[in-house]
């Protein structure tokens, strides 16, 4: 059972999470997010996830954080994933399949080179 939070605990958790997910302080070198809303899953996002899990396992990659999130908005270009390399702007990839995923994993996630043919764009959305 977790301890019940007090208001001040929220910032403590937020701080801890920021350290872990922002790829600083050695938490990882790259973060790969597969967009898995209903739209992504129906377009095949689970296969992309399985492919990535297989690659990470097979090549015993230790410093890549693999995670999921919801729909990224552009349903017609699913499956989508976002690759973020430490200290670089995140890159969104669209219309994925297993073969493209393998290329992106090898070239970008491990090699650091953006696969321009499959990338939609880089950076983040405007949040108000």
């Amino acid at each position: 059972m977790m301890a019940k939070l007090k208001p001040e605990d929220l910032s403590r958790i937020a701080e801890k999470m920021r350290r872990q997910t922002l790829l600083r302080e050695g938490a990882g070198r790259a973060k790969v997010t597969v967009h898995m809303g209903t739209c992504g899953i129906s377009a095949g996002a689970r296969k992309i996830m399985t492919t990535l899990l297989g690659l990470i396992d097979q090549q015993q990659v230790q410093d890549v954080i693999l995670t999921t999130s919801g729909c990224a908005g552009l349903c017609s270009r699913e499956p989508m994933m976002t690759v973020e390399i430490k200290d670089k702007a995140p890159v969104k990839y669209v219309d994925l399949d297993e073969k493209k995923t393998l290329t992106i994993f090898t070239d970008h996630v491990l090699g650091g080179e953006i696969v321009t043919d499959f990338a939609l764009g880089m950076g983040s959305e405007r949040v108000s």
Partner: peptide, 12 residues
């Protein structure tokens, strides 16, 4: 071409 920024894509 280098890939565009999301802030240059009208959809976003």
């Amino acid at each position: 071409p280098p890939i565009p920024k999301l802030s240059d894509i009208a959809f976003f």
